[in-house]
Design a protein around this nucleic acid. Structure first.
Length: 433
RNA sequence: GCCCGGGUGGUGUAGUGGCCCAUCAUAUCACCCUGUCACGGUGAUGACGCGGGUUCAAAUCCCGCCUCGGGCGCCA
């Protein structure tokens, strides 16, 4: 395949071999066109029936759509061709024929519903729009990694098979580990904290997390990609600065490197957020939600923000924003409370703007307070000994956060369903493919 | 976990008790067509998720099952 030329790089005057999929055949009688599609685009192959070998014409014009073909011939400039060039073939080979009845139409003439598309993801990703989402997703991850390196963090990977959950409460997928009870990890939280106490100090991880909640919404997955950051010697304010930097880098990377993909998806007005993300306290947030009048009942201090309230506030603010200073009781035990106001947590969320995108905070690094926190949440500190004991050997003050990777792509591209941002989503109903 | 809504040819749809041996588009098959670019024309094949019930009559109403989507809770 070394001699293969991509459709985009075929220049007039060249003798080339292109390989790709039979996108469409237009047979006009005496002349017929085969459109070959590859990763880089499409090119037209011309068959003038009277002037060409019958077998060549037959192979090229009777091949089933979506079959893999290889075409060798001369590239000619032709203004009537869709791309300005076309191939006059010397030979056509059908490398892998496709069944004539396709489970969905990659040419996009007829829409398919999401479940049909997910059942046939390979064919779905032959469509430019679906392909563009995953090229953008790759750019988001690339630019996030670059931003993390600029922040001086080291990329780590932590175990996904664990003996105990992170936060208790949350549903975990149980598995059997050589006869022992184990779980799929819901978050790298505890492990990344252990690493800020190591010589690495500042770390990030991009990896899968597993949640066994039986929710069924367009914004939840049971297997998601978490973009985690944790650093020694920073507080929650500095953690928010870092978070903003990484989110912004992802937008900048996409704006700079994915113009074609954005165009394919119809975004002619893709914008990198230009202002610093506003930081609202929890108290300000519930006041503003109450002021919108969108909710039937008024929120009071201590309530978690209901979905409806998040949407109302998101519309009110109109962009990304942080919510800070939460009541301690609705944030997990490993988040530190303010020293002078122990009923207030340093935990924060980043809203994007209608959905929670990030959660983070300054962590409790003091051994005694951490163990108290476990007990207060009804967890047995003994079960987390591998974690707590390291807080006895010099654990620095630290803070961090986690971005929902798919939610970042979803909110960035305004996708109607988070499953659009995962190749093979795992949700309540779907375990295959 | 609680609550709502949907399943009609390969794909996407019309259809609200008789006008339905089921509409339209696209795909597929056959024939015609020398510049298509959503090519065009003629014809053909192909479907009511499964099971039970109500009724003279069921795609349509009822019950159960399967399956999919969504809302809330919770969360990334």
């Amino acid at each position: 395949m070394n001699d293969r030329t991509t459709t985009a790089s075929a220049e007039p005057g060249d003798d080339v071999t292109v390989a790709g999929w039979a996108h469409e055949i237009r047979d006009l009688g005496g002349i017929a066109f085969l459109i070959v599609r590859d990763k880089t685009g499409k090119i037209q192959v011309k068959f003038e029936k009277d002037a060409m070998d019958d077998e060549l014409v037959e192979t090229g014009t009777e091949v089933a759509r979506e079959s893999v073909v290889s075409v060798t011939g001369a590239v000619e400039e032709e203004e009537r061709a869709p791309t300005g060039v076309e191939i006059v073939p010397d030979s056509v080979e059908v490398i892998a024929p496709a069944d004539p009845e396709l489970p969905l139409d990659p040419s996009g003439k007829v829409d398919a519903e999401l479940p049909t598309r997910l059942d046939n993801r390979t064919l779905d990703l032959r469509r430019e729009e679906a392909k563009a989402i995953f090229e953008i997703r790759a750019e988001v991850l690339r630019s996030a990694r670059e931003a993390f390196r600029e922040l001086g963090s080291t990329e780590i990977t932590t175990p996904k098979i664990v003996a105990t959950g992170t936060e208790g409460g949350t549903e975990l997928f149980p598995i059997t580990y050589f006869g022992q009870e184990a779980f799929m990890n819901q978050s790298p939280q505890l492990f990344k904290q252990l690493m800020v106490g190591s010589g690495l100090e500042r770390v990030f991880e991009i990896g899968p997390i597993f949640r066994a909640e039986e929710h069924n919404t367009p914004r939840h997955l049971n297997e998601a990609t978490s973009i985690d950051f944790e650093s020694a010697f920073i507080d929650h304010e500095e953690a928010m600065d870092a978070c903003e930097q990484v989110v912004r880098a992802a937008y900048e990377g996409v704006a700079a490197n994915c113009a074609d993909q954005l165009d394919t998806l119809g975004y002619d007005d893709f914008e990198v957020p230009d202002e610093a993300f506003p930081r609202l306290t929890y108290e300000e947030a519930i006041e503003r939600i109450n002021a919108t009048g969108e909710l039937d009942t008024q929120l009071v201090w201590g309530d978690d923000l209901p979905t409806e309230g998040e949407k109302a506030l998101g519309t009110d603010v109109g962009g990304h924003y942080f919510v800070t200073d939460w009541p301690s009781e609705i944030k997990p035990f490993y988040i530190k409370d303010y020293d002078d106001e122990t009923e207030l947590s340093t935990g924060f969320d980043l809203m994007a703007p209608n959905m929670e995108l990030v959660s983070g905070g300054q962590r409790e690094h003091r051994y005694d307070q951490l163990v108290e926190g476990f007990e207060a949440q009804g967890l047995d500190p003994e079960a987390f000994d591998y974690y707590t004991k390291m807080f006895r050997y010099g654990m620095p003050p630290h803070a961090g956060w986690a971005i929902g990777g798919e939610r970042l792509v979803m909110t960035m591209l305004d996708l109607p369903n988070i499953r659009e941002a995962v190749l093979f989503p795992r949700d309540r109903q779907r375990l295959s493919p």
